[in-house]
């Protein structure tokens, strides 16, 4: 089902934005978590959203994925508005998110996780699944082989039948990404994919994200790990206190005064000053 062949010919960034974030604002009571943020995501690029703790990155992500409704502003996928649609519809349209916490289902194996994540590819209806229709059976076979392929692609092939809760942290992250890939996204939203990883795990994860982009999937990620972000991203959007403070290539961002200031402020906070 899923073709996991790198689609090099498509890889040139077309200049056409696949995802447009326009004047997105989210207020929680008196708090403005996201304040008038706009940016475009180009086809097949890896775009990182960075910012200190509490800058509103995660809220921004939830707004794009449809988990939260923005107070004002819109998100467009290939020109089609996503705003106001529930998360499962946004997923069907092609924007799929992963989670910061490594959320998994107890007792299920890695393969079962990825199989169930193929939900959107189901050709059989609920009744067909219950009655065991031929479609439901062929779905099951397709999902199994596709899930196995995805796990293999992400380097989890040997762990297919492991119970997910016994997997180490890095592999759980990869499992979360495998589940997102099963939904066949056009745009994959990764929420802190490298958090809590050691340098080795991060290296592998960076390779993995590149590999995903090479499949023709546009990647947007929120991340703290600056080294990984600088190595991986084509472009970076920096946010602080809910506002976009800079946008550009990794080099431009590294030398941006406002970004440096925002991050030094964060260091002070962390020291408890």
């Amino acid at each position: 089902m899923t073709t996991l062949e790198p689609q090099m010919q498509n890889l040139e960034r077309t200049g056409m934005p696949v995802l447009e974030v326009k004047n997105l604002t989210k207020r929680f009571g008196g708090l403005v978590a996201v304040n008038d943020i706009s940016f475009n995501v180009l086809n097949h690029e890896i775009l990182a959203v960075i910012g200190p703790n509490g800058a509103g990155k995660s809220t921004l992500f939830k707004l794009i994925a449809g988990a939260e409704t923005p107070t004002t502003g819109t998100v467009l996928l290939e020109g089609q508005p996503l705003t106001g649609k529930p998360q499962h519809v946004v997923a069907r349209l092609g924007v799929v998110r992963t989670f910061q916490e490594t959320t998994i289902f107890k007792e299920m194996t890695a393969l079962e996780h990825v199989m169930i994540a193929h939900h959107l590819q189901s050709k059989a209806g609920n009744w067909g699944i219950f009655a065991g229709s031929p479609r439901a059976k062929s779905d099951e076979i397709d999902f199994r082989s596709s899930a196995s392929q995805i796990l293999g692609f992400l380097g989890l092939g040997a762990l297919q039948s492991e119970a997910a809760r016994s997997l180490p942290h890095g592999h759980l992250r990869a499992l979360g990404i495998a589940m997102a890939l099963a939904a066949k996204p056009k745009v994959l939203l990764l929420d802190e994919p490298f958090a809590g990883m050691n340098p080795d795990e991060t290296d592998r994860a960076v390779q993995m994200v590149r590999g995903i982009r090479d499949l023709g999937i546009t990647v947007v990620l929120v991340e703290h790990d600056m080294r990984a972000v600088m190595r991986l991203s084509d472009r970076i959007v920096a946010v602080s206190f809910g506002k976009k403070i800079a946008e550009g290539s990794p080099l431009e961002i590294q030398n941006d005064e406002r970004v440096i200031e925002a991050y030094l402020g964060k260091e002070d906070d962390e020291l408890g000053v």
Binding site: A91, R97, F105, K106, I116
Partner: peptide, 24 residues
Amino acid sequence: TRLGRVFRALQQDEALASSFGVNV
């Protein structure tokens, strides 16, 4: 069947289930 797996997914985490397209 897959229905039961979807139900169990809802029990564990509705947000995760909807992230891969389940109409929770």
